[in-house]
Design a protein around this nucleic acid. Structure first.
Length: 974
RNA sequence: GCCCUCGUAGCCCAAUGGCAGGAGGCGCCAGCCUAAGGAGCUGGACAGUGUGGGUUCAAAUCCCACCGAGGGCACCA
């Protein structure tokens, strides 16, 4: 085993002459266990709140200067942690520890995203209750995390499965259920949003309906509506609503999935089962109401540009026009018109045909009984009539999986036999159905402009449809080449309007205005984002706080009924469904809890019998607001006291247009759209309803990289234990003498290359492991794990140890003499650099600077000065907290260094008295001069030009140009 | 196909317009220490920045094209 080998190499059980007081893995383990106990017993990292149970016991006010640092909390899987998982946690821990040492009030903890499918599937297989599995896994995670020495406030470590947590998740759900989005409302006070629109209590809406201030969409008077009709009207406004919707039904998992949980090839992200599109009754969250704010407020966030661009792309806002095309023939009088959405209304004159999605509701109405005369064979799909052709095409399309659709790049479709009229030029254009038009986007119908849309161009090529240019080609572009670019409009005029000569933008607005004047269309804003499918037919999730009355009307449970906990079950399986049968019906596991799912309640109309909602929430629910619960985890009156929220997450008036939120949120980029979009949505709704002062949950986001690993396969293709592979000659790898093939990628059990933090702690100690992970490179970059490199970090901590402790006697060996000027100068420059690096999470460079200072002390050969050693210990503490606490303690300090002091750089030592300037001639360094640091540019230039070598090079000629970069260099152009 | 990252010694990385006089680490070589091995200590070798153009007094850094790696999206009208 590599671990044992390395451990002995590190001194554990090695030859007898290992000095007795060396910082070995065994020593490190003792020290680490000791300090972890001390921190826990004394509550070193308990962070005070302004108010509530966690406010200071001594009544002192909390520090103004605070930082809230957050990790994406883990799902506690049965596999435990590998060395890749804690990378981000160590990164935030170092940052938090550094800031705490500089005097800040730092909030840092970690909880558990503990609802989820794996525990439930395990329960289905074994009958073990998911709670049992989950609790075991959480306990294991807690002990693994504790072993790494995180400065977490354990009192705040909550799990989404805790009944108290579930209570507030359900409470927020009822808040959303009891709200609607009013697009005309003025923004909530204190918001930075520019447009109108915000969530309001549903009671306001009912008030407006009953007073007549607001009309019901279909114009009926409120007073005349039945109870059920009223409920239907109101329900259609709620932020959470039930609808019959096309969903991703996954019989293999017995549940529906959100779009985000389905892979591009039409299978489930979890389990890789087939997923089918079909219509079902489902709960939805109206996230689309927040489309504009979710996209606009990205500009106010300090997030990686890539994540912002992924969210923009996902929300997919576009501006265009909706245009109505009437049908050409009397046979269709009364049907239509066909409404299309286009982002290129300027090309309307080039629309030479139309396409409806196969599922479009108008298809049945317009399909002709017979083919018109002269229809090309290719348009008919070989069918006798358009009705047959359409039916055949639809059947074929429904059988095709999404994967088939993508693999079949050739455009397909059939003619419906119907014609429409292009409103700008009265041209009669054929209407097709084709699966390249999707029912779920826009109106499910398009006007096809083959001249300027690549997909339409391709389709027109297959079906021999006319192509009319309406944008002028660049000079020299062949007329048969596809042109999707810009240019002045051509061929675009009728008796009333001409776009010819206009640029695209002007042409768009001109034609849209004309369409609107004529009643043919209007501007339209469109999103790719759909409402969020919120129900799952599972067991291990939050039950909906919803009951249905005898009329089937949904009611939210009153707060006093929360939390609504899961009923005990024996059999957790949803139903034994054939994974390949799209027509199977979901049977939620909660349906089996017959006692639980009927309840007698008084919801204001006297005691009545209600039935419970049997769906549960998706796993995303808890992660939509957990950052708020960390702030006030013991609060039983609200999910979070407003004062605590304002203190930790409120807007910072010193930042322009600050949305507030967590000061630093670190996690993997895989959550770029799912979790981060849902959490933003909930937070904005909570803001609108006045429950939080911040408009965004995460002010700053940072994506850590991944730790990747090599994996090795032998001749049979079997993964061999990576830790036992040797590299005999560069690039040639062997396992038990046999050559093996190297791959690079994930760390995982199936790849036989897992290294765990427990292994590393045993072999080196947590501090060495932390140093190594932080020293490997910048936190945001992925890097390969290499156990053999870890020893470098151990050597550093051993040298640091030796600067304080005599390895033979165990005595503290620092000198109380003043350090020499050179050492002092290096120390202050190190302090300055390390402070900057820590603040910017540049840990790898901070470590390099600490090593330089340590090496300097080591080389001097004398007992190092206390002043320098103490600075070094304090500066290393965020990275290697246990050994530094120990050294700090042995240096005579009784107080933990967790709250500082952090060394201050003395500016006096940061500036040189003289500066050496390289002198470039024609871009090459030809000489060097040394001048006083305060010399001005003219003086530097004069000295440079007077330099012997330069005089020689210039040979008497005056230089054409001299560039002096203060403090850096001189560049001469002869 | 489109979008986003990223290419610097054998390997991980630093320098983001200003001396690659490489910050640091691993590995390698040598010396000291040792009975020896390991560890420790001291010293050393090794790249001219993926390729080709351009801007500039000056480019690893900015711009363009290409090559390679990783990630995201994928008929969104």
């Amino acid at each position: 085993m590599t671990i044992e080998r390395t451990a002995s190499a590190a001194g554990v059980g090695a030859a007898d002459d290992t000095p007795p007081f060396r910082y070995t893995a065994a020593m490190a383990n003792d020290i680490e266990a000791k300090w972890q106990d001390v921190w826990e017993e004394t509550g070193t990292f308990n962070t005070p709140n302004p108010v509530g149970e966690l406010s200071p016991t001594d009544g002192k006010p909390v520090a103004d200067d605070k930082t809230y640092v957050l990790d994406m909390f883990p799902y506690p899987s049965g596999k435990g942690l590998h060395v890749g998982h804690p990378l981000g946690y160590i990164g935030t821990d170092v940052w938090g520890r550094f800031l705490r040492m500089t005097g800040r009030n730092v909030l840092h903890t970690v909880g558990f995203d503990s609802f989820g499918l794996p525990a439930e599937q395990y329960a289905i297989r074994t009958g073990t209750h998911p709670k049992v599995t989950t609790d075991e896994n959480i306990a294991r995670y807690r002990s693994q995390l504790r072993r790494l020495g995180f400065a977490h406030d354990q009192r705040r470590s909550v799990a989404t499965t805790d009944p108290e947590f579930v209570r507030w998740t359900q409470w927020i759900f009822t808040q959303l259920f009891e709200s609607w989005f009013d697009p005309q409302a003025e923004p909530a006070p204190g918001g930075g949003q520019t447009g109108k629109g915000r969530a309001r209590p549903i009671a306001d809406l009912i008030g407006e309906f009953s007073s007549g201030a607001r009309e019901i969409p279909d114009g009926r008077p409120w007073a005349e509506l039945s109870k059920a009709d009223r409920a239907a009207v109101v329900d259609s406004y709620r932020l959470v609503y039930i609808t019959e919707a096309p969903v991703n039904w996954c019989p293999g998992l017995g549940t529906v999935l959100s779009n985000e949980e389905v892979t591009a090839d039409g299978r489930s992200e979890i389990g890789n089962f087939p997923v089918f599109r079909r219509s079902m009754r489902q709960w939805m969250m109206r996230i689309t109401a927040y489309g504009d704010r979710l996209i606009d407020d990205l500009d106010r966030l300090d997030w990686p540009e890539s994540v912002k661009s992924m969210q923009r792309n996902w929300i997919g806002r576009s501006y265009g026009a909706q245009v109505a095309f009437r049908l050409a023939d009397d046979a269709h009088a009364g049907a239509g018109p066909i409404e299309v959405y286009t982002t290129r209304p300027d090309t309307l004159f080039g629309a030479t045909y139309m396409v409806l999605a196969p599922e479009h509701p108008l298809v049945d109405t317009i399909s002709a009984a017979e083919w018109p005369a002269d229809v090309p064979e290719s348009w008919t799909g070989g069918a006798a009539t358009p009705i047959d052709a359409v039916a055949g095409y639809r059947l074929a399309a429904s059988r095709k999986s999404d994967l088939d659709r993508q693999e079949n790049k050739q455009k397909t479709g059939v003619f419906t036999g119907a014609y429409a009229v292009n409103p700008v030029n009265d041209n009669r254009i054929p209407v097709f159905i084709a699966d390249y038009v999707l029912m779920g986007y826009g109106t499910g119908a398009i006007m096809a402009v083959p001249a300027h849309d690549a997909r339409d161009y391709e389709f027109a090529g297959v079906f021999g449809l006319p192509i009319v240019d309406t944008v002028e080609r660049p000079e020299g572009m062949p007329s048969d080449e596809f042109h999707g670019g810009e240019g002045p409009a051509i061929n675009s005029a009728n008796d009333e309007v001409s776009l010819n000569g206009m640029a695209i933008d002007e042409a768009k607005s001109t034609i849209t205005r004309w369409l609107q004047d004529k009643g043919f269309g209007h501007p339209r804003k469109q999103y790719k984002l759909r409402d969020w499918l919120f129900s799952r037919q599972r067991y291990w999730g939050e039950p909906f706080p919803i009951v249905y009355d005898a009329d089937g009307i949904a009611h939210s449970l009153p707060d006093t009924q929360l939390p609504l906990t899961l009923p005990p079950l024996v059999d957790f399986s949803p139903a034994d469904l054939d994974p390949d049968d799209p027509n199977s019906e979901p049977v939620p596991p909660l349906g089996k809890a017959t006692e639980w799912n009927t309840v007698t309640l008084d919801l204001g109309d006297g005691e009545q019998t209600y039935t419970r909602e049997l769906n549960v929430m998706p796993q995303w629910a808890g992660s939509c607001w957990y950052e708020l619960r960390y702030l006030d985890p013991t609060n039983s009156k609200s999910f979070c006291d407003p004062e605590n929220e304002r203190y930790w997450m409120g807007k910072d008036p010193s930042r322009p247009n600050d949305p507030g939120g967590v000061d630093l949120y670190v996690g993997g980029v895989e959550h770029a759209v799912l979790h981060l979009l849902y959490a933003r949505f909930w937070h904005k709704a909570l803001f609108d309803l006045g429950h939080v002062s911040s408009e965004e949950p995460f002010r700053r986001l940072f994506n850590q990289g991944y730790i990747q690993a090599y994996a090795y396969t032998d001749a049979r293709g079997v993964y061999v234990p990576a830790e036992d592979v040797t590299e005999e000659t560069p690039g040639e790898f062997r396992y038990q003498g046999q050559p093996v093939h190297r791959e690079y990628g994930k760390m995982g059990k199936s790849l036989n290359n897992v290294v765990t933090p427990d292994d590393m702690c045993a072999a080196y100690g947590a501090d060495v492991f932390r140093m190594y992970e932080m020293g490997m490179g910048p936190l945001h970059e992925s890097r390969p794990w290499q156990t053999r490199d870890v020893v470098g970090s151990q050597r550093y901590l051993q040298r640091l140890w030796r600067t304080v402790i005599d390895e033979d006697t165990g005595a503290v060996r620092v000198s109380d003499d003043a350090p020499d000027v050179e050492t002092l100068t290096l120390m202050h420059r190190t302090i300055d650099g390390v402070r900057t690096d820590y603040a910017a999470m540049g840990y790898n460079t901070a470590i390099a600077k600490l090593i330089v200072l340590t090496n300097h002390l080591t080389k001097s050969g004398v007992d190092p000065a206390r002043e320098v050693v103490e600075a070094l210990v304090l500066m290393t503490a965020p990275l290697a907290p246990h050994v530094c606490e120990e050294l700090w303690n042995r240096l005579g300090h009784d107080e933990s260094l967790a709250h500082g002091p952090f060394p201050q750089a003395d500016a006096e030592f940061l500036l040189d008295e003289t500066v050496e300037y390289p002198i470039q001639v024609k871009g090459k360094v030809r000489s060097r001069i040394t001048v006083p640091a305060d010399a001005d540019a003219a003086a530097v230039e004069a000295t440079a030009l007077a330099d012997e070598k330069i005089v020689e090079l210039l040979a008497g000629a005056a230089p054409r140009k001299v560039v002096v970069v203060p403090g850096r260099m001189v560049s001469i152009v002869p």
